[in-house]
Amino acid sequence: MEWLAEYTMFLAKAFTFVVVVFLIVSMIAALKARSKREEGTLTVVRLNEQLQRMTEKLENAILNKSALKALAKTRKAKAKAKEKASEPGKRVYVLNFNGDIKASALDNLRHEVTAVLELATEKDEIVVKVESGGGMVHAYGLAASQLVRIRDAGVPLTVCVDKVAASGGYMMACIGDKVLAAPFAILGSIGVVAQMPNFHRVLKKHDVDYEMLTAGEYKRTLTLFGENTEKGREKFQEDLENIHRLFKSFVGQYRPQLNVAEVATGEIWFGTEALEKALADEIGTSDQYISRMIHEADVFEVHYVHRKRLQEKLSAGMSAVADRLLLTWASRFHNQRFW
């Protein structure tokens, strides 16, 4: 019995030691993971090599040995000639912006632009694929400012719109030296919208009082639960008109060839119509443009990855679902047609 008691005590001490070590290692791993998550990771993919691998796989499946040998010889000669060139060739950097209502992709875009501008020169080019139906004014204003950084640095900027660049999305797209739009991409919606329900009559019906105290005449113009006044509505409308004026001025600054008064009505146009209105400069998809650039330059796709915790992923997923639902119903209210 004495031996059993000593052995039990030994197991308890060993178990305690293992638990303590496990907790310490877990804490260190958590801190390390948190540090990595905060810093994020910049991934770079050379699209020339990616296309070459796919092409070679297709060639090996289709061509005979003599044809493959001839192709290999031609490619080797081109590569040797490129190596002998005294100056480095043109570089094209491809960035992606998939925007939601809150412009959540803004954080990644900031890091990507900062990194690319450390190397890009006036001989290079930055291609940004924008896909967004717009959202919060301040968020998209900052997102557009990131593309302004590229223009200010003197690096040629091309914006490709494959699906939609409307409202805040077009605020970003218009900054490009060149704007490409797919034939049925949606561009425009140069306008401002704000809406909210008011439950004042419901509360009044159930004898519920609602009080709101402010300092400053226009600290709150419209409210969800209080009784809105005509003066408050007028001030709210005035603020919307001011934002719209700033929006139009911004678009006109970067696209002087555009008749802003004609297109700043909140309407949207499809690719070919957008070209006629000077909202775009060329009809084509980002795939077409980037494939062409691959044959003329070294093309790199740059993406900043910000690792998120599980709850952040779940929250982002729910937010994305909500955004899609809102955009779907907004599209129905605007009588957009789908095939």
Rank of each mutant, 00 (worst) to 15 (best):
M1K: 06
W3E: 14
L4I: 11
T8N: 12
M9L: 12
M9R: 15
V21H: 00
V25Q: 12
M27A: 11
A29D: 10
K32R: 04
R34N: 13
Q52Y: 00
I62Q: 02
N64K: 12
A67F: 02
K69C: 07
A70C: 01
A72S: 11
T74M: 05
R75L: 04
A77M: 09
K78A: 13
A81I: 04
A81F: 03
E83K: 15
K84N: 08
S86P: 03
E87L: 15
G89V: 07
R91F: 03
V94I: 07
N96Y: 10
F97V: 08
I101V: 12
N108C: 05
V113M: 07
V116T: 07
L119I: 01
A120W: 12
T121E: 04
D124A: 04
I126W: 11
V127R: 00
H138F: 10
L142Y: 11
A144L: 00
S145V: 00
R149K: 10
P156M: 04
L157H: 12
V159G: 05
V161T: 04
V164K: 13
G169I: 08
M172Q: 02
M172H: 01
C174K: 01
L180K: 03
A181H: 06
G188R: 06
Q195W: 07
P197C: 03
N198E: 09
N198C: 14
F199I: 05
H200I: 02
V202N: 10
L203E: 05
D209W: 07
M212S: 10
G216Q: 07
Y218H: 15
T223Y: 10
T223D: 15
L224M: 14
E227L: 09
G232I: 03
K235T: 06
D239S: 12
L240T: 08
H244E: 13
Y254H: 15
V263H: 10
T265Y: 06
G266Y: 07
W269A: 14
T272W: 04
A274E: 11
K277I: 04
A278C: 08
L279T: 02
D281Y: 05
G284D: 01
D287Y: 07
E296T: 03
E312W: 06
T328V: 03
H334I: 01
